[in-house]
Amino acid sequence: MENKRIERIDRGIKVRTEGIYSIVSMREMMYIAGPRIIFLGILFLLPLILEAAPYWKRVMNIMFIYSLLAISFDFLANYTGLVCLGGAFFIGIGGYATAILNSVLHIPVLLSIPLAAIIGAVVCTLLLLPCLQLRGVYFAIITLMFPLLFTRVIEATNILGGTNGITGLESIPGHFTENYYIMIVALIALFGLRRFVNLDAGLVMRGVKDNEQSIRASGINVTWMKTQAVFISSLIGCFGGAYLAHLYVWAGLSLFALDFSIIPIAAVAIGGGGTIFGAIAGSFILVPLSEFLRFFGSFRIVLYCIILTAFIVFKSEGIMTYITRKYHQFERWVDV
């Protein structure tokens, strides 16, 4: 083995499907569409299958909320260069916004969730606006601070229901609406963002990550581009928060819990950063895993950490990156 190395070569079909020729044969079309169709098919059947286990249907909803957070983190970190630990911030603002809309202003639930997402996104963007000059770890620390700040402010001033939170939110009506509502939004976010980052406007955002000075030298306002990115990202996050509040029929301080900031990052690390799909894959592994491990009682966190570490040590590139590579390329040992 000493004088050999792995050579990776693109599969012929991958090269063929890159151009317009991909539409000439069924096989090539299936090469592109197949994985997506299988993924969507399983996803849409999942609520029907899990009908037998109502508890797991609930876990599925939580899974999608974490997916949304992970997508928003992945987009902001790997396509705009802003490492944002503000998952809890988005969830909290979205949750409280829908609580006010629904329980005080009596707006019906299916309307109040998207409305709260938009209002929450505006609030989050405005609050993060002064911090957009910061980069890397400094931006991360500031965004981590915001949920803590809000918790303390609500505790101290007793506004928004204080430590009791706001109760009396409507639950989401309908048997399957609850599942499909969040699922479809997550899918829109996934496929929408995957398309957006390859548009010209998306390329500019990737340019912001690469180097800001050149963007400025091209006459583009960097802060405005970042503002747009933060808005998109917090819109996705706040939607998750608003949905979660209606799932619990309660908006309280636990919406600002640190889990919402940390677990999405772990999900992106496992799934593979910069793929956006990896964010969903990661949370589909992490959230059910955490539920499975309840069986082990207080030993749960230890096992959770071991599995997480194993993923990061042995598949540090991320599951999605690994699977994509295997799908598009074959490997062989060649002499050096």
Binding site: L203, D210, N211, A217, I220
Partner: peptide, 24 residues
């Protein structure tokens, strides 16, 4: 720039999409 500042992660021709997209 004296020290070249291309968008390293993008292909060379995609580097030009950004100024072509710029408001001017």
């Amino acid at each position: 720039f004296q020290i070249m500042r291309p968008y390293y992660s993008l292909p060379a021709y995609k580097n030009l999409i950004i100024p072509l997209w710029a408001p001017r």
